[in-house]
Design a protein around this nucleic acid. Structure first.
Length: 294
DNA sequence: CACCAGGCGACCC
DNA sequence: GGGTCGCATGGT
């Protein structure tokens, strides 16, 4: 996608994107991430690494051809953040595929969703926790996890210190122990997360190497699935939202409902090619948030 | 108050 | 290989 990053006098940056290609609301609230919060004025606040990130679309800067987002990052970090937002990924091949009316409607409804390039450790833990939970519960559980075992930081806004918490490292999870994880409401997933932290910290290179394009979604999923608490669905989510394997296709209860209603029980997602995971998000978002179609 | 949630592991045949 | 069943917890 064509986009631009421009420095502002105050040290922050504008990210300028073709109109409609980036929706903060859809991207951050479609269930792929759990820590972005929408503030009253439309700003989205998140924590990436040890930084507090705030981004907002400014309608007075935007035109009929481009949307302008201001982010509280310097140029180098804004470049990385644009990649986090998936702005370097080309979604146009999905439009070349022969889609059904239902698929076209879902794609139109979800326009502006970007598949994020999230941290693999945070994504793995988040989706281990996600199983058999609803999204508000996942968000609350992860918030408690960060508050109790992450690192407290402060960020100054207009003279006031705002507190925030980093996502706990594997070491911080190990120190928390099963008891500490239980106190955050993880339930039976505490053991999964604890053992995953041990394995991740000891074999970090095995996880990192899956980020390479030499490792496709299939080999990444088959590696992830060997870990306790990671089954096919969670492995597909981690691959899609953390490892940037855009052809991964998580099948959860919502997707299965769509399959039963519109596809005679199974979705032939190979048909969507290398962007199957993006189509999955369109289908998920459309049926979950558009009550007309649920 | 039941019901259920971006499923998985253990166990069965 | 495929089909059940229990599971901690809290949001709705």
């Amino acid at each position: 996608m064509q986009y631009k990053i421009e420095r502002l006098p105050n040290g922050f940056c504008d990210i300028i994107v073709p109109v409609g290609e980036l929706s903060l609301e859809k991207t951050f609230k479609c269930g792929q991430c759990f820590r972005w919060v929408r503030l009253g004025d439309g700003t989205f606040k998140g924590v990436l690494g040890d930084k507090l990130v705030m981004i907002k679309r400014f309608s007075d800067k935007s035109t009929d051809t481009s949307d302008v987002f201001t982010v509280n990052l310097d140029y180098n970090d804004a470049v990385k953040f644009a990649n986090y937002l998936g702005l370097n990924d080309d979604y146009s091949p999905l439009r070349d595929i022969n889609l059904t009316n239902f698929e076209k409607k879902a794609m139109e409804y979800g326009k502006g969703i970007r598949i994020l390039h999230q941290d693999i450790w945070e994504t793995s833990v988040s989706f281990i926790i996600s199983q058999r939970n609803n999204i508000p519960k996942i968000e609350n559980t992860i918030y408690r996890l960060c508050e109790k075992f992450g690192t407290k930081k402060t960020y100054m806004i207009r003279g006031n210190d705002v507190e925030y918490y980093t996502f706990p490292t594997p070491e911080q999870i190990i120190n928390a122990g099963i008891t500490g994880l239980n106190s955050c409401g993880l339930g039976y997933r505490s053991e999964y997360v604890y053992k995953f932290a041990l394995d991740f910290s000891m074999n970090k290179n095995n996880f990192l190497k899956c980020l390479s394009d030499n490792y496709d979604s299939k080999s990444t999923i088959s590696f992830l699935i060997t870990h306790l608490g990671i089954g096919p669905k969670v492995a597909n989510c981690i691959s899609l939202f953390g490892y940037n394997k855009l052809d991964a296709f998580p099948i959860d209860v919502w997707i299965q409902r769509i399959a039963d209603k519109h596809y005679n029980g199974t979705i032939d997602y190979q048909r969507y090619g290398k962007l199957a995971g993006l189509m999955q998000q369109y289908l998920f978002y459309y049926t979950k948030y558009n009550e007309q179609e649920s």
